[in-house]
Amino acid sequence: MILGVPWWVFMIILFIFLSGYMAFKAMRAERRLEQQYIEQEGKIYIDRIEKDRKQKQERKRLPQ
């Protein structure tokens, strides 16, 4: 007993804080993955727009 409290109570409190830390760490990692996915999809979208713009300019240049 420490300060009149059983040792296992301190262990439970420690595990609660550890669990909170691990949840926070997992949430940050998930957010980072989500941000990478968003950036990747945005790049694909921008590349497609640029490709369409170039094709449109090429069609303008060709005499019909």
Rank of each mutant, 00 (worst) to 15 (best):
I2H: 12
L3Y: 15
L3S: 14
L3G: 10
G4D: 06
G4Y: 04
V5T: 15
V5K: 14
P6Q: 12
W7K: 15
W7I: 12
W8N: 06
V9G: 01
F10W: 15
F10V: 02
M11G: 04
I12L: 10
I13L: 14
I13T: 07
I13W: 08
I16L: 13
L18C: 12
L18I: 13
S19Q: 08
S19T: 13
G20A: 09
Y21I: 03
A23S: 08
A23C: 10
F24L: 05
K25L: 07
K25T: 04
A26E: 06
M27T: 13
R28L: 11
A29T: 06
A29F: 08
R31V: 08
R31M: 07
R32A: 14
R32F: 09
R32C: 03
E34T: 08
Q35R: 15
Q36T: 10
Q36G: 07
Y37S: 12
Q40R: 15
E41G: 01
E41C: 04
G42S: 11
K43A: 09
I44V: 13
I46L: 09
I46N: 04
I46K: 03
I46A: 07
D47W: 01
D47T: 01
I49R: 09
E50H: 03
K51F: 11
K51T: 11
K51C: 09
K51V: 03
D52N: 15
R53P: 00
Q55A: 10
K56C: 02
K56R: 10
E58G: 01
R59G: 00
R59I: 00
R59T: 00
K60C: 00
K60F: 01
K60W: 01
R61L: 05
R61K: 05
R61V: 01
L62T: 06
L62I: 11
L62W: 06
P63W: 03
P63K: 05
Q64N: 10
